[in-house]
Amino acid sequence: MRVVVGYGNELRGEDAFGVDVIKELEKFHLKNTKLISAFQLTPEIVLELLEADEIIFIDACNNEKNHYALACSLSVQSRFNLSHHISPKTIVYMLESLYEKHPNFFIYSMMTKSFDNIKNENIYKMRIEQIVHHISSAQ
């Protein structure tokens, strides 16, 4: 099974990119795909990922210079940071070390310098469509 996890705060403009992608994906009724929308990643979410062969995390990522670029942000994610919320790499590490699950995982990030509002509605929607198209056509 493929699990797509979009996370962010809907009240914070472009921070909600992951959540908005999930809303669009829900319209496609994709087979063998589970969609999860979350405010933030917390430890217990691993229990919803145990069946996953592949996990796609979608979020907004802080980047001043490349606003609206789509990228994989693995390099800026540290699995060692821990507060009351955790990173995708920590989630995957938990799956591996605690449940012997080794799913493929990807992080799709939209770079933004505007977490608190949507600077350009058209480009923002276009980026959502691009991710949605990529995920829905990769079935």
Binding site: E44, V46, L47, Y93, M94, S97, L98
Partner: peptide, 14 residues
């Protein structure tokens, strides 16, 4: 802790 006390970590998650 996940390496040395995995059950405790799973308990916390559950």
């Amino acid at each position: 802790m996940m390496q040395t006390h995995p059950q405790m970590a799973r308990d916390g998650i559950n």
